[in-house]
């Protein structure tokens, strides 16, 4: 089975330090600590730095200096989204403001057919559910086991309270039955649509001017089971504000490839609007 080979470098101790700061001092204190921490990542995680620099310089056509500065900022904003995740899931939601374009789309799906929500490694989409008070059904977030394990432990209590279920894609195929059950219960299933893993099926499309691989699975499930799909984002904006987006639920009547094309087109729009919040820290394009 294909597996995510990337590393989650944050340690439980690191997370606990941030949690301590969050609880005792507040969000902005945790943000301050991120300044040296994010610089460390820029300097000592060269693969990630190179990947993000490539994105800014080669795909968004920023000058070398601007691309470098933006790379530094990208790491900082990524850290802030993680802090926000802890804060929001830990019960500090009221410290944040938010606006929601398309909340009614998710409510409609949740109350009728269920559906597939496709996000990306952009912004902080897994906190979106925390701002949805009118949806009683659980959100099933489907993720690769290696990618989520350390976070899951820390979020466990919050996940139980907030009606979030994480479905880990595992070797033992237990995820199949959880996904099937969610379908049968007409629940919402959330996937990242932008992370292709070596060894798994992919669909290659032109993304920001260069070929890139997108995962086959989420788009296949939406198409095959004729489930309404919605593209969802929770983008960070200044002053502890989030802008959430959910497109109207639609059923794909075309091919899986057609759906990937639709996805990548709107993803390009979001990337251009929020360039600092692209968080795929690996060689995304086929260069």
């Amino acid at each position: 089975m294909a597996q995510w080979q990337g590393q989650s470098r944050g340690t439980p101790l690191g997370y606990k330090i941030f949690l301590f700061l969050l609880n005792r001092v507040g969000v902005r204190a945790a943000y301050l600590l991120l300044i040296p921490v994010s610089l460390y990542y820029v300097l000592f995680v060269p693969k990630a730095t190179k990947a993000i620099y490539y994105y800014f310089h080669n795909r968004l056509n920023y000058s070398p200096i601007r691309a470098l500065l933006r790379t530094r900022l990208n790491f900082l904003v990524f850290g802030q989204t993680i802090v926000d995740k802890f804060a929001i899931m830990g019960g500090m939601k009221n410290a944040y403001s938010y606006e929601f374009d398309g909340e009614e789309n998710l409510i409609e799906m949740a109350n009728t057919t269920g559906g597939i929500l496709i996000g990306a490694h952009m912004g902080n989409w897994d906190v979106a559910s925390q701002f949805l008070n009118d949806i009683q059904k659980p959100f099933n977030i489907v993720m690769y086991e290696n990618e989520l394990e350390s976070m899951k432990k820390l979020f466990d209590q919050a996940l139980k309270e907030k009606k979030i279920k994480i479905i880990a894609i595992k070797q033992d195929l237990s995820h199949i039955f959880e996904i099937k059950k969610a379908f049968e219960n007409k629940e919402l299933l959330c996937f990242h649509g932008d992370r292709f893993l070596e060894g798994s099926k992919f669909i290659e499309v032109d993304f920001l001017g260069e070929k890139a691989k997108f995962p086959h699975g989420p788009f296949y499930l939406a198409t095959k089971f004729k489930m309404p799909y919605s593209f969802v984002y929770a983008m960070k904006e200044p002053a502890l504000h989030y802008h959430l987006y959910a497109s109207k639920g639609k059923i794909n009547t075309g091919s899986v490839e057609d759906l990937v094309e639709i996805y990548k087109t709107q993803l390009e729009e979001k990337v251009k609007k929020y360039p600092l919040q692209w968080f795929n820290y690996y060689q995304f394009w086929n260069h």
């Binding site: 089975m1 294909a2 894609i169 033992d172 195929l173 237990s174 995820h175 199949i176 039955f177 996904i179 099937k180 379908f183 798994s200 099926k201 086959h216 699975g217 989420p218 296949y220 499930l221 095959k224 089971f225």
Partner: peptide, 25 residues
């Protein structure tokens, strides 16, 4: 069949609909 980790969902549903029983893990 070039089964991906998520393709198995399809296989389970197909077995259910064609043979009328639920596959277990």
């Amino acid at each position: 069949l070039e089964l991906d980790s998520l393709d198995y969902v399809d296989l389970v549903v197909l077995i259910d609909s064609h043979f009328g029983f639920k596959v277990q893990q």
